[in-house]
């Protein structure tokens, strides 16, 4: 089983992508999609990436919910800054945060979360010191942002990946 499906999650995602692209769940498409998904996962195995281990799927679902809610909330906040503020972007600034997480997958997911939330962007991660540099559009109170990123995202990501 392990030689056939080295990355089961990747293969499942590729099969789902194939079926969605063709908009059909006929047996022919399932067979064709499965062949493609298995071949692609062998290509991936040849690259030998580090295998991610998702420890707690429940925590991952909760994180997804939190992130969706936060994206909605900060859409409203950033939209308000752009429309209402007289001189938008006057509170913008750089922010450095010490991180405890060392897992590569966890950091990659954290970077996606931070950048796709309007109002914050991931700039630089120093692997030696474990510090992260962000740019924040509405930097009024630094501790609130540090609290948000460490308390809301990093803790859950560490539960999932470490």
């Amino acid at each position: 089983m392990n030689w056939l499906l080295p990355y089961p999650l990747l293969s499942a995602a590729l099969l789902a992508l194939w079926l969605l692209l063709n908009q059909s769940i006929s047996p022919g498409h399932i067979v064709l999609g499965s062949v493609i998904a298995i071949l692609a996962s062998w290509v991936m195995a040849a690259l030998r990436p580090e295998k991610p281990r998702i420890r707690r799927p429940g925590a991952a679902l909760r994180l997804a919910g939190i992130v969706l809610f936060d994206i909605l909330r900060s859409n409203i906040a950033v939209g308000r800054i752009i429309v209402r503020s007289r001189e938008p972007g006057m509170n913008a600034g750089f922010l450095t945060i010490p991180l405890d997480m060392r897992s590569h997958q966890g950091l990659a997911v954290l970077s996606l979360i931070i950048t796709s939330t309007p109002g914050t962007i991931w700039l630089d991660y120093d692997a030696a010191k474990g510090t992260l540099m962000l740019h924040v559009l509405d930097l009024v109170d630094e501790t609130v942002w540090i609290e948000t990123i460490k308390g809301r995202y990093e803790r859950l990501l560490m539960e999932i990946f470490e």
Binding site: N75, V78, G79, I82, V83, E87, P88, G89, M90, A92, F94, T115, S116, T117, P118, G119, T120, I121, H135, L137
Partner: peptide
């Protein structure tokens, strides 16, 4: 609104936030 932010915001690092909307 996001694209208007691209016009209104002052410097590049503030403008990067606008297209995410």
């Amino acid at each position: 609104i996001g694209s208007i932010g691209l016009l209104r915001l002052g410097n590049f690092y503030a403008r990067v936030h606008a297209p995410t909307l």
